[in-house]
Amino acid sequence: MKHPSSDDLEIVARIRAGDKESFSALVEKYSQRVFQSCMGFLHDTDEAADLTQEVFVKVFEKLGDFRGEASFSTWLYRITLNMALNHSRKLKLKRFFYRFSEDGQRPELQLTNDSSADSGIIREEQRQLIRKCVDKLPAMQRKAFILNHYQDMSNSEMASVLRLSLKATESLLFRARSRMKTELKKSLNPEIWSVSNTNKQ
């Protein structure tokens, strides 16, 4: 994350003056970061790309509301986190109904005798479990966790985005990691986790 930049403010001023092509520079600069945050919430490249697009369109529409109290990037990440959180909630609901809409049964995994295929399936299950653990974090903890682990933000940067004090942010991140550990521990199943990490696909 960049520190408050006069470049961004200049670009925003140009866009407000009617030069919408200047928005291109902001997209170029921040699209990858926004996409990474979206990935943290959605865990799917297509969904994250769609949401990235939605975020920038929303930012363009709401640019008039940007008062410059925080840096543009902070404002952008706030919008991203809120939209991503809402989107992931909607997606969760959609997936729930989709899962039970066909025949009321959860789809069973197709297990084969092929050991490499078994290992691949188990590895995918492990990935799903980890994603679920991230998704189970309460909203604010999840935001902090994603900003820290997906964006490599410092605590002070996170505090700015989350509108919290530095101490509160540190505490939030600690609770997020602790909750993540608890969720992970709950999901520990010897059948799944006995596969060594060296046996990766």
């Binding site: 990858q32 996409f35 990474q36 490249t45 990490n197």
Partner: peptide
């Protein structure tokens, strides 16, 4: 098991983090 799971969580996050946004975005 927790150690394996935690280490793998780090790998999953690193994988997702390294995903590149589409050049057409």
């Amino acid at each position: 098991m927790l150690y394996n799971a935690w280490a793998f969580a780090g790998e999953v996050i690193a994988d997702e983090k390294s995903a590149q946004v589409s050049p057409f975005i």
